[in-house]
């Protein structure tokens, strides 16, 4: 790809403009939240990141099922790419959630069930990527990835349930949560717009990551072409 082609990349520009737009609107246009004040604006990054984290790992799960069922390497590439991009958004969700927690609860980390579940997701999928990286054989790497991709995602409800339960033993969950219906319509509109914009960014990054993965497989397959 030449520099010129790289500059004329409509999906990239669309995602970039959408993200910049929601950030500008989120920071300067919509009013501050009545209860939480300025810090609530971080939700326009936190909520979409968290949503994409779960979406990405769901895609990994679904693609893993397809791989084991059909031995379709394209599905395996999707699973691996989605997990890797998802991991970035998971990290963003945790960091922004923690900053919000510091402003709201006065501590960086309060073992809030949602944040704790997301943090466990981060390590589960970090493990997924590390294990894939340690297996040389293409087929075995795909199989191991698929099994961990399936088990890891199916485990999420149990993780969340256990953490919620464990937390409720010490303190009833009385905290004002992000996404409560108390926020007014303009804020809700901006939140939805930011989810949309970040989804575009995710799809763009996922696609680029897939191209890389596809190129790797093609390089290997090229060896198999009858000369």
């Amino acid at each position: 790809m030449t520099m010129r082609q790289r500059l004329i990349d409509p999906p990239a520009w669309t995602a970039l403009i959408a993200v910049v737009a929601v950030v500008v609107v989120g920071l300067f246009v919509v009013p501050a939240d009545r209860l939480q004040g300025q810090v609530q604006r971080i939700m326009y990054v936190h909520v979409p990141s968290a949503w994409i984290a779960y979406l990405a790992f769901f895609i990994t799960f679904a693609a893993s099922v397809r791989y084991l069922w059909r031995r379709d390497l394209a599905a395996d590439r999707l699973a691996a790419s989605s997990a890797e991009v998802g991991l970035v958004f998971t990290a963003v969700a945790i960091v922004t959630g923690s900053i919000w927690g510091k402003a709201t609860w006065g501590v960086w980390w309060d073992w809030d069930p949602r944040l704790t579940t997301t943090a466990l997701l981060l390590v589960i999928y970090a493990g997924y990527i590390l294990i894939r990286g340690s297996i040389v054989d293409r087929d075995r790497r795909a199989r191991a990835g698929a099994v961990i991709g399936i088990v890891g995602f199916a485990n999420v409800p149990i993780v969340h349930f256990s953490v919620t339960w464990w937390r409720s033993l010490h303190q009833p969950p009385t905290i004002v949560r992000p996404g409560d219906p108390t926020i007014d319509h303009m804020l809700l509109g901006e939140l939805l717009a930011s989810v949309l914009a970040f989804s575009l960014l995710f799809l763009y990054l996922l696609n680029r990551r897939l191209e890389l993965e596809r190129a790797r497989d093609e390089a290997e397959q090229a060896l198999l072409m009858p000369s």
């Binding site: 390590v123 970090a126 493990g127 294990i131």
Partner: peptide
């Protein structure tokens, strides 16, 4: 352990 500890956290 890296893969299993978080899976087995519950």
């Amino acid at each position: 352990p890296v893969a299993l500890l978080p899976l087995l956290a519950p």
